[in-house]
Design a protein around this nucleic acid. Structure first.
Length: 274
DNA sequence: CTGTTTACCTGGGGGC
DNA sequence: TGCCCCCAGGTAAACA
């Protein structure tokens, strides 16, 4: 499940490998994940130079320059992988595009077992896309004041808001659980019951967890690998996510799993009380 | 308008 | 061993 730290790791890897490189050839295989269609994607990529790679939340935006300039948006959703492999390495049935470069001994492939991911050529700029899709400010780039304003003007439970990309962009199920256990806040807590101090703690722990996870190269629980095909190591630092039945690192009580906001939710009943 | 549910997909694992 | 069913969760679209 690529969330902000995993996407950040991939973007950093692409920036030191394929940025400023020129695309020489592409092979496309799975039309359903290309938007608005395969032909538009091919035309934008063909003979282009990759001039910029940026991230907002879980979204990747790649600037392409040939006779015109286009932005490619990549979203990995659940099982998407954007990675460099040897030019001659064989592809499997889950590989949906291959991108070759001039004077480079690697190819960039997009692989996605469940095909939830998308590669889309935008009509305009990333900023316009962000506005149109009501994407909130990035979780690594939001002040406490703004975070607090955005949280308190919404209703509902805290975990659902942390997962809502129109409230804060970049957090998914893993980091929502990790932020809340470190904040000692019950994931089902209603926003209206949170004090300003508690909101400040959530903001602080959010930055702490996300930065630590970026430092660790992300969490590799199932399919995630970075742009060089390597796993991250934040799974070794998890306190709640997928820790059901294990003792809480703070109090020793057993971590339990329940369903909140339609998602599996892991927490410590002792540290995180309603 | 806002909050909730369903569809999109495939592989892995549990139960029998 | 094999088959069935459930589960994983990010987002868009449909729904209430």
């Amino acid at each position: 499940m690529p969330e902000l730290p995993e996407v950040e790791t991939i973007v950093n890897g692409l920036a030191i490998s394929v940025k400023n490189k020129n695309i020489s050839k592409i092979n496309t295989y799975t039309a359903s994940i290309f938007k608005p269609n395969t032909e538009t994607l091919q035309n934008a990529l063909q003979n282009s130079q990759i001039t910029d790679i940026i991230r907002h939340g879980k979204y990747i935006f790649i600037r392409l320059k040939n006779t015109s300039e286009n932005w490619l948006m990549v979203h990995l959703r659940m099982t998407g992988q954007l990675m460099l492999t040897e030019i001659n390495s064989p592809i499997d049935k889950h590989t949906h595009i291959e991108i070759y470069f001039k004077d480079y001994d690697k190819k960039l492939i997009y692989r996605d077992i469940r095909k939830f991911g998308r590669l889309q050529i935008l009509d305009s700029t990333p900023n316009a896309y962000i506005v149109e899709h009501k994407l909130a400010p990035d979780a690594l780039d939001i002040t406490l004041k703004k975070f607090s304003e955005r949280i308190t003007k919404r209703k509902g439970i805290i975990k659902a808001l942390l997962l809502d990309q129109s409230v804060i962009a970049g957090i998914g199920n893993i980091y929502a659980d990790e932020i809340l256990i470190r904040s000692k806040i019950h994931p089902g807590q209603n926003i209206s019951n949170l004090s300003p101090k508690q909101i400040a703690v959530i903001h602080e722990k959010m930055l702490e967890v996300l930065k630590q996870a970026v430092f660790r190269g992300g969490t590799s629980f199932s399919d995630y690998v970075n742009s060089f095909g390597k796993k991250g190591s934040f799974q070794l630092e998890l306190s709640a996510y997928q820790q059901t039945g294990k003792p809480c690192k703070v109090c020793g009580n057993i971590i339990v799993k329940i369903k909140i906001a339609g998602r599996s939710t892991h927490f410590c009943p002792q540290c995180q009380q309603l």
